[in-house]
Simulated scan of single mutants.
Amino acid sequence: MTTMSRHILHLRFDLPADHDADLPERLRSLLENITPRVQMIDPDVAVLDLTGALPYWRRDARSLTEVIQLRLLAYFGLRSAAGCVGNRILASMACALTPARPARPAPPPTAWPVALRVRPGPHAAR
């Protein structure tokens, strides 16, 4: 019998000051689409047990955390800080030390043709 190490994710959301009252429940609903083991500590803090979700999503803890943060940003426009380790105390401490992840802007469309022209192709080997 193989034992799987636990992965506890502590998330802290950057909620706007004037957020609507049902936003924490909508956040919980979104997080429960990833794993059913979600606990909302405060309106802006959630703890998730990712242990059983990792094999389902076929990802490691870091990439699943990135998926969760990307969904929070896409659906609600919320940045979040995250800490994921084997127990709740260390996950909380790691999250407290982590700044909220900034949104990464997409490169401007004009950068694509330049990147395609600069990249050497098979004709450059001659």
Rank of each mutant, 00 (worst) to 15 (best):
residue 50 L to P: 00
residue 12 R to F: 05
residue 27 L to F: 05
residue 105 P to F: 09
residue 56 Y to C: 09
residue 9 L to S: 06
residue 17 A to T: 09
residue 93 M to G: 03
residue 68 I to V: 15
residue 32 E to L: 12
residue 54 L to M: 04
residue 101 R to L: 14
residue 72 L to H: 02
residue 125 A to Q: 08
residue 66 E to W: 02
residue 87 N to D: 15
residue 6 R to S: 14
residue 118 V to M: 12
residue 28 R to E: 15
residue 6 R to I: 11
residue 58 R to A: 13
residue 77 G to M: 08
residue 93 M to C: 05
residue 110 T to M: 01
residue 82 A to K: 09
residue 12 R to T: 11
residue 122 P to D: 14
residue 115 A to P: 02
residue 62 R to V: 15
residue 110 T to P: 03
residue 64 L to D: 00
residue 96 A to F: 07
residue 88 R to L: 09
residue 14 D to I: 04
residue 25 E to Y: 04
residue 41 I to M: 11
residue 119 R to Y: 12
residue 62 R to F: 09
residue 2 T to A: 14
residue 25 E to S: 10
residue 10 H to R: 07
residue 4 M to H: 15
residue 14 D to S: 12
residue 84 C to N: 04
residue 89 I to G: 05
residue 124 A to L: 07
residue 33 N to C: 10
residue 86 G to C: 09
residue 111 A to N: 04
residue 50 L to Y: 01
residue 53 A to G: 04
residue 107 P to L: 12
residue 45 V to A: 01
residue 121 G to S: 13
residue 18 D to R: 12
residue 112 W to N: 01
residue 36 P to D: 07
residue 44 D to W: 06
residue 72 L to R: 05
residue 75 Y to M: 12
residue 23 L to E: 02
residue 14 D to Q: 13
residue 31 L to A: 02
residue 105 P to C: 06
residue 41 I to S: 00
residue 55 P to E: 01
residue 17 A to W: 09
residue 54 L to Q: 03
residue 98 T to G: 03
residue 2 T to C: 10
residue 113 P to F: 07
residue 30 L to G: 00
residue 46 A to S: 07
residue 62 R to D: 06
residue 84 C to W: 03
residue 48 L to K: 11
residue 8 I to E: 00
residue 76 F to S: 05
residue 100 A to Y: 09
residue 30 L to T: 09
residue 111 A to P: 01
residue 123 H to Y: 08
residue 113 P to D: 08
residue 1 M to Y: 08
residue 56 Y to G: 08
residue 14 D to H: 09
residue 9 L to K: 03
residue 107 P to W: 11
residue 51 T to N: 03
residue 123 H to V: 12
residue 18 D to H: 12
residue 51 T to K: 03
residue 31 L to Y: 00
residue 20 D to Y: 00
residue 67 V to I: 14
residue 123 H to F: 08
residue 122 P to G: 12
residue 33 N to S: 14
residue 89 I to V: 14
residue 110 T to C: 04
residue 59 R to A: 13
residue 61 A to T: 08
residue 82 A to E: 05
residue 50 L to K: 02
residue 97 L to S: 06
residue 83 G to N: 02
residue 106 A to G: 02
residue 48 L to D: 00
residue 5 S to M: 12
residue 93 M to T: 09
residue 42 D to R: 13
residue 87 N to P: 00
residue 84 C to A: 01
residue 35 T to N: 09
residue 51 T to S: 15
residue 80 S to L: 10
residue 63 S to P: 00
residue 102 P to W: 12
residue 1 M to L: 11
residue 35 T to W: 01
residue 32 E to S: 11
residue 69 Q to A: 05
residue 110 T to R: 07
residue 58 R to V: 04
residue 121 G to I: 07
residue 39 Q to I: 11
residue 54 L to N: 06
residue 31 L to I: 01
residue 62 R to I: 13
residue 6 R to F: 04
residue 58 R to P: 05
residue 11 L to F: 08
residue 125 A to W: 01
residue 18 D to Q: 13
residue 114 V to F: 11
residue 80 S to A: 15
residue 107 P to S: 10
residue 9 L to C: 15
residue 117 R to Y: 08
residue 34 I to D: 04
